[in-house]
Write a protein that binds this DNA or RNA. Structure first.
Length: 156
DNA sequence: GCCAACGTTGGC
DNA sequence: GCCAACGTTGGC
């Protein structure tokens, strides 16, 4: 089982939106970056755990936990001219873009802010800290454990 | 709202 | 295939 961090702007889609979805599950569509696409298509697997991160807000932070319930499959929003994520280069035979399905698990007892992550030397290697804009990031087992502890999730 | 970082595009 | 221009992201 691997660990990931998924970024989203909560004004667009938040952890609480995920909680309110049927089955608390949502297709993670609209990723239009090749490195993130490669993770979704090739590496993210069912059962992997996800840190759900809210970006582009006054206090960006990891807010909750989710899990992968379906591994990579073609992102059909790329084929839909009415979608804001439409990509005319994509086709059924060559979908270009991929998505996975994500299911809500639980919120952190307390959010783990970007500021507190930056102040933690053991988390200095995270792409988040290096100011990468990558929206799908791998997380090591050590980083996962540290962030859950910071989030008050010692029982897990 | 600014702007630095950085990924993508397209002319050559 | 280089690289300048451009667009987007996201912290602040």
């Amino acid at each position: 089982m691997a660990y990931w961090l998924f970024k989203t702007e909560p004004g667009c889609f938040s952890f609480y939106d995920l909680k309110n979805r049927p089955d608390r599950t949502e297709p993670w569509d609209g990723v239009r970056n090749f490195q993130a696409r490669n993770f979704l298509r090739d590496t993210v697997k069912v059962g992997d755990r996800v840190l759900f991160y809210h970006s582009n807000i006054p206090e960006p932070a990891v807010v909750g936990l989710a899990e992968i319930v379906r591994s990579g499959y073609p992102d059909t929003t790329a084929l839909n001219p009415d979608s804001e994520h439409f990509d005319p280069r994509a086709s059924v035979d060559k979908p270009i873009w991929y998505m996975v399905d994500l299911r809500y698990l639980e919120p952190l007892q307390q959010i783990v802010t970007l500021e507190s992550i930056k102040q933690t030397p053991l988390l200095a290697g995270m792409p988040l800290v290096k100011r990468s804009r990558l929206s799908i990031q791998p997380v090591t087992a050590d980083e996962w454990r540290i962030i859950l502890t910071m989030g008050g999730m010692k029982g897990i």
